[in-house]
């Protein structure tokens, strides 16, 4: 009865549609994440504490949302592994000489590497905050404490840039994968893909820069 779903999801087209959709949903998460983080700049971070309290107020619903997020990540990561392995397998004998024609980009050829780096960063990020003792007592203090350490700040800056590189291909590519392509749309997407990448890299990258260089404990 449900075999058609399995067939569709296992096909090369089904896989890329799911990859694109989960990617776009994760970009949706990034939008809300950045929105929340920007409250760190509001009233010396008190806005951020209020935001965290607001989220905590959802109780079980928040746990449900977190589980949904975990499912999205797992789906995206599982497909990335599968696509990468299958695509390596598809050309066992490599070319002695290969030149591209300028269509593939640094972002497109490094998707797996940037994705793996983001996953590594994500684990550190969760340990730093979500699963850190006392984070929920004073969220803004925990952020300041982490990001004012040069080692951490540099890792967070690099992660923001890596995220931007991932999105420089991923955002544009997701629309193509779900079939949203049209001369009118493509012209916008080509620019929007880069704009989205820069937006998130600068947005998330601003926090370690701020806490490392412009923030002092007394302020």
């Amino acid at each position: 009865m449900l075999r058609w779903i399995g067939n569709a999801l296992n096909s090369s087209v089904g896989k890329k549609i799911v990859m694109g959709l989960t990617g776009l949903l994760l970009v949706g998460f990034l939008v809300e994440h950045l929105h929340g983080n920007l409250k760190l700049y509001e009233g010396d971070g008190t806005g951020f504490n209020e935001y965290v309290e607001f989220l905590q107020g959802f109780g079980p619903l928040l746990v449900l949302a977190e589980l949904g997020l975990v499912a999205l990540f797992l789906c995206h990561i599982f497909l990335a592994l599968r696509l990468t392995l299958e695509n390596r397998q598809a050309r066992k004998h490599r070319y002695a000489v290969r030149n591209n024609r300028g269509k593939e980009s640094f972002g497109s050829v490094s998707m797996f590497a940037t994705g793996a780096l983001i996953l590594g960063y994500l684990i550190k990020h969760l340990i730093d905050y979500r699963f850190a003792d006392g984070f929920f007592d004073d969220p803004k203090g925990a952020v300041a404490n982490t990001l004012s350490q040069p080692g951490n700040a540099v890792i967070y800056m690099i992660a923001a840039v890596v995220l931007g590189v991932h999105l420089s291909h991923g955002f544009r590519s997701a629309f193509q994968s779900i079939g949203a392509s049209h001369p009118k749309l493509d012209a916008i997407l080509d620019k929007a893909g880069i704009a989205v990448a820069v937006f998130f890299a600068v947005g998330f990258g601003s926090f370690p820069v701020y806490y490392l260089f412009f923030w002092s404990p007394s302020s």
């Binding site: 090369s12 593939e104 392509s181």
Partner: peptide, 25 residues
């Protein structure tokens, strides 16, 4: 046993007949 498309678009640039990746979408 072909690979999966990940939208590099090198195919379109290599196509001697200029087939567009719009067809893939």
């Amino acid at each position: 046993g072909f690979g999966n498309c990940t939208n590099h678009f090198e195919c379109m640039a290599a196509c001697p007949k200029g087939i567009s990746v719009e067809n893939i979408a």
